[in-house]
Each structure stands twice: as C-alpha cells, then as structure tokens.
Design a binder for these strands. Structure first.
Lengths: 169, 169
DNA sequence: TAATTTCCTATTTATTTACTTGGTTTTTAT
DNA sequence: ATAAAAACCAAGTAAATAAATAGGAAATTA
C-alpha cells in the first residue's frame, strides 16, 4: 500500500462517479475539469480501474463511466491498489529477502504499518465517504459549477476546428 | 507523513544506533555495510537527523554517531518527519486550498489517514523495536557479521591508495 | 454521416530518490 | 608532527516514477 497523488486522483475520480450513481454516466472530460486532473492522465488511471472491474466505460455520445460495483462495495484500499501496481512498500513488502536473502532490521515494522493502513482504507467504502457532510458540501459546490459550465458551454459547444475545440479551457 | 525508502533507511540506521546505546559510537561506514545503504546517502540523511537533534556526531577516529536522546524517547514518526521534509501528503496536507482555494473532495480523508499513520508511528519508540524478538534476531545475525568483518579487515585495513581504500566492497 | 466519447500506445517533461564525487575539517593515535 | 579516521559539506549525476502530452482507432449515438 503506497500512498501517492496517483491513488488520490483515482479515489477522487471514483468518488465523482459515486456521486452520480444511478444518474447519467460521467465523462472523463467532466472529471478532468471538476477535479483538476489532466484528461489523458485520467484515461491512464481509468484503464487500470477498468481492468480491476471497478468502473465500466460506455462509449459514444452520452457515454462516460459508471461504477463497476455499487458504492457500498468499493473500498478506498481497492481503488488505490488497482492504480498503484507495485505497492510493495518499496522493497520491503511481500517478500522477506530485502537483506541479502534475509529480513532487514525494520521489516516487521513496515509490513505491520502497511497492514494497518490497508485495514484503515479497506474499511472505508465510497458510500461511507458520500455520507460525510464535508464531502457533500464540496460535491454540491462542484455540482453548481458543473451546471454553470454546461449552460455557458451550450452556445460555444459547436466551435470546433478540425475536430479540436477552440476557446474554453 | 509520507512513507518512502528514505524514511525506512533513516529508521533502520537509527535502530542500528539504538542497538549500540551505551557502547562505542557507530560509524556511518559500519551502518552502510550492515544495512546496505550507500555511505554518502547516509551522510545526507544524518545531516537532517542531526538538525532535528536525533543524533550526535563525534568526529575523528573512534568517532561515529550516537543517539541524541535515549531510545525510549525517540518515536519512529519523529525520525521519518526529520528526513521527509515535505511531508505534506502531496498537496493535500496542511493547507486546505488544494482545489482553487477550497478543499478538494477527498481532503478530509487524506488528512485523517495521515493522522492515523502518524499516531501509529508516534506510538512506537526505538526502544519498543529493540524489544521485539524478530528485531533482536536480525540484530544478532548482523552483529556476528560485523565482528567477522572486523577480524578480516584487521589485516587488509592498511591497503589504501591515495587515501582511498582498495579491496573489500 | 458527424460528433462524442472511450480506448489505446507512445513519447515527453518534471520531480524526486538514490547515489556519486570530491572535497574540508576535527580528532585520535603513532 | 604527521597520518589516518571519521564527521561534515556541496555539487552533480542517474534512475525511477509521476504527470502530462500527442495522435490516433473504435464504438456509439443523434
């Protein structure tokens, strides 16, 4: 269990999906704007999330992503694990041969900590996060911005050149 | 509280000092060999540890490093904090303005986790680690190797060229 | 048929870790 | 005194990873 912005991005994006459970699928474009993550980086992350069965992609206009399982079933630990491929706590994780075939001095400590972190994060589901007041507040603020952006975008939406949109961010 | 090999190296090295509390100071050379960490990298880490008052350097032959405080007083969290300068959990740590001046969706989650990890590591002192059977085993194994190396080295010790030792690893 | 979106692959840039090099100072022992 | 052993110091390099970029192909909808 390694903790980086990569995992944080993934959790944030998944939470965005969870906020729209049952509604329209969410596009990566949308997440990119709202959560301030680069679109292509999101694509990379979602490729991993899809492999892990955590999301389902829907192609074509009106498409986007949906959760692969219900928000109550997905733990934060699962999300981070899916995205952090070598989560071996840098050398000292699964195998105990970090010290010329044997354990290093602090091996036990790191595996223990790693487990603790995993347990903590595995005990929190996306649904749990949705129920937190702080998260709700931020979500509503973002939802407001989202709608405003759509209203603005409705006029400018057709402004494209060679398939690339001009104007807007 | 960020967890990297950097912090792990620091804790391992500090534990090595703790194992020799009351005895001769331990040289970085010694730690480098036993814990398989590059000498100069250790020097960098120890510069930080010294700034934090966690170690005391003793110059000259027969010198080395000693703990700055007794092993029971030094927590693992302190060691990692001393070495990981920007332990801001990558963007989302101290300040709550990760999202254009406001909190991001998962802000609360990360600060919470960060605190949990800190608490866990702050509750473990070097002395606590010394009392673990697994740690003792590894320490004894290393102590054996250490003595063997000294015996071997006694003869080859003078083999130097331009002040740089030749032979050995 | 055109637009929208996922999906895919490769490359580039930036950052950080880890290591290296080449010193200087201080202290001890011969 | 002198040489050796150590801490101390300052750059620079290499490697790994994160993050972003670029340029598409395939699927789906309107």
């Amino acid at each position: 269990m390694r903790l980086t912005t990569k995992g944080r991005y993934a959790v944030t994006a998944m939470l965005d999906l969870a906020l729209h459970e049952g509604k329209q699928p969410v596009t990566l474009q949308d997440i990119a704007i709202n959560q301030e993550i680069s679109l292509s980086y999101l694509e990379q992350l979602f490729a991993l999330l899809r492999q892990a069965g955590l999301v389902r992609g829907i192609r074509g206009p009106g498409g986007g992503y949906r959760l692969g399982q219900s928000a109550g079933r997905v733990s934060i630990a699962e999300i981070i694990s899916a995205v952090d491929e070598n989560s071996d706590m840098t050398r000292c994780g699964g195998k105990a041969d970090c010290q010329q075939g044997e354990e290093c001095l602090t091996h036990e400590l790191w595996t223990e900590l790693s487990e603790k972190i995993y347990q903590f994060l595995d005990d929190i589901s996306l649904k749990d996060l949705l129920q937190r007041p702080r998260v709700c507040e931020v979500a509503e603020r973002q939802e407001g911005r989202r709608k405003a952006a759509i209203k603005q975008g409705a006029a400018a939406q057709t402004v494209t050149f060679d398939g690339h949109s001009i104007g807007g961010t």
